[in-house]
Structure formats: C-alpha cells, structure tokens
C-alpha cells in the first residue's frame, strides 16, 4: 500500500513540475496546488498507513492510526488553500494590470510606471 501511495505522490509531483515549467500563469498556479497535494500524500505515507481506531482516550484501543501526520496535513492543507486562493487573486490582478498571463513577457522592468 505504501508503495502505491509513494508512486502516486511521485506522479503528482512530476505532473506538478510539468505544469510549473509551462508559461501560463494559471498553469503554474495549478502546478503549485498539485505539488502540495503530492507532498501531503507523501506526508501521510510517512506516518505509516494503518487501519485502526481513533487514538483518543480509550484504554482498550490497541491498534490505532498515528494521528500526528493527519493533524499536520490538515494544517498544511489549510495553508495551501490560503496560498492558492491568494495567488489566484494575484494572477487575475496582474493579468488586468500587465495585460498578459505569459511569464515569458513578465521580464525586465515594466516601463510606464
């Protein structure tokens, strides 16, 4: 099971790299979002995939899943959500201001400023 998720994380990160190497701003943003998913999946795998009970306040629970990676991933997902939202707003704003969503044209110092 771990092997499958690790391979899946690799595929996600690989496609994220492909997306981020393209020239469109929106594709780059989607790439960063996909990359964060791949990394979170990796984190989940690192905490060992187990079927078990809830690890809270019960003496007769012996086989439980590690709660820490899940809590950490939740935090990381919230952060990634905020980041993606902000970059999307920024992409729209810069598209209106710069008139392009091609990073190839976002070089040098823009003049009429």
């Amino acid at each position: 099971m771990e092997i499958i998720t690790i391979v899946l994380a690799g595929i996600l990160i690989g496609s994220a790299v492909y997306l981020m190497l393209s020239k469109s701003v929106i594709r780059i943003i989607i790439g960063t979002a996909v990359m964060s998913h791949g990394v979170h999946l990796m984190f989940l795998t690192m905490g060992q995939l187990k079927r078990g009970n809830i690890p809270v306040l019960d003496d007769d629970v012996s086989n439980y899943a590690d709660p820490l990676p899940q809590a950490l991933i939740l935090t990381a997902i919230v952060i990634a959500f905020a980041l993606t939202a902000y970059t999307l707003v920024l992409a729209l704003r810069s598209y209106r201001e710069l008139g392009t969503d091609n990073v190839e044209e976002m070089k040098g110092v823009p003049h009429d400023d």
Partner: peptide, 13 residues
C-alpha cells in the same frame, strides 16, 4: 469570511 472575500474579489475583477 475569508473564502467569501476571495471569491468576491475574483468575481469583481
């Protein structure tokens, strides 16, 4: 509020 804020911002644009 934050999610709504962002959607409104994108919509206004």
């Amino acid at each position: 509020a934050t999610s709504l804020f962002i959607i409104v911002l994108v919509g206004e644009a």
